[in-house]
Amino acid sequence: MNGPEIERLIQLLGRLPGLGPRSARRVALHLLKKREVLMQPLSAALSDAARAIRPCTSCGNLDTVDPCSICADPRRDAGLICVVEDVGDLWAMERAKIFSGRYHVLGGTLSALDGIGPDELNIAGLLRRVNEGGIREVIVATNATVDGQTTAHYLAERLGDSGVPLTRLAHGVPVGGELDWLDDGTLATALKARRAL
């Protein structure tokens, strides 16, 4: 129906998260219609990003410099490490402007079903950073999924002998949340993690 270049564009767009075949076709058509003002600048930006952006050898963040701008920032508390699953989680924490320490990106979670073990994640880098000293606390900010919980427990076992306190993000009722809208697991976690008023 379409030329091979258009079909390839649609197939590649369809691999992006949140874009199925229909959405990929709509995006491709929009890009083709706005070739000069959108498609060509996007192509240049993608090419520049692919050339310049690389993972930080310290924490795993993506940046154009190594170490990344977060690791190199002297105003950040080097004694606090927040462990996240992916760079998107790091970006979410930074967007909220709630953490002034440094990060460690695991690159995913442990998953027996997907064949992802400790060697496939950046756990060795975290252990190295903790063993080098100077870390006062490691905050585990993995998602509240089965794989996220499994990863958190594994990290607790591996870091247990380090003497560094290991904490976990709280789970439960979100701010502004209503009890009758919560799922059973969230409600149970919130009840177990209750605290004094």
Rank of each mutant, 00 (worst) to 15 (best):
L16C: 07
R26N: 12
L31G: 11
P17V: 00
K34A: 13
K34F: 05
L42Y: 10
R15D: 01
L32M: 15
L38R: 10
G20R: 08
S23D: 11
L31F: 13
P17N: 00
I10A: 06
E7G: 03
Q40M: 13
R15V: 04
M39P: 12
L13E: 06
P21N: 03
P21I: 04
G14K: 05
Q11M: 05
S23F: 04
L9Q: 10
L13N: 08
R26L: 13
L31R: 13
M39D: 13
P41C: 02
R26M: 12
L32R: 08
Q11W: 10
G14D: 06
I6R: 09
G20A: 09
R35G: 05
E36N: 07
S23V: 06
R15Y: 04
R22F: 07
S23M: 05
L29F: 15
E36T: 03
P17L: 01
S23P: 02
L31I: 13
R26H: 14
S23G: 14
V27S: 05
P21T: 09
P41N: 02
G14A: 03
A24M: 02
R8P: 00
K33S: 11
A28P: 08
Q40K: 15
L19H: 02
L29C: 14
Q11I: 08
I6W: 06
L29K: 06
P41S: 03
R8T: 10
R15F: 01
P17D: 00
G14Q: 03
A24I: 01
M39T: 14
E7T: 07
A24Q: 09
L9Y: 11
H30P: 04
L32W: 06
L12T: 03
L31T: 14
H30A: 14
S23Q: 11
L16G: 04
L31V: 13
L16N: 02
G20E: 04
G20Y: 03
L19G: 04
E7N: 10
E7Q: 10
I6P: 00
R26C: 12
K33W: 07
I6K: 09
Q11Y: 07
R8A: 05
L29Q: 15
Q11S: 13
R8V: 07
H30K: 10
E36C: 01
R25W: 01
L38H: 12
K33D: 11
K33E: 14
A28Y: 09
L42S: 04
V37Q: 13
R22S: 06
P17M: 00
L16K: 01
A28N: 09
E7P: 01
R22P: 05
G20P: 05
I6L: 12
L19T: 08
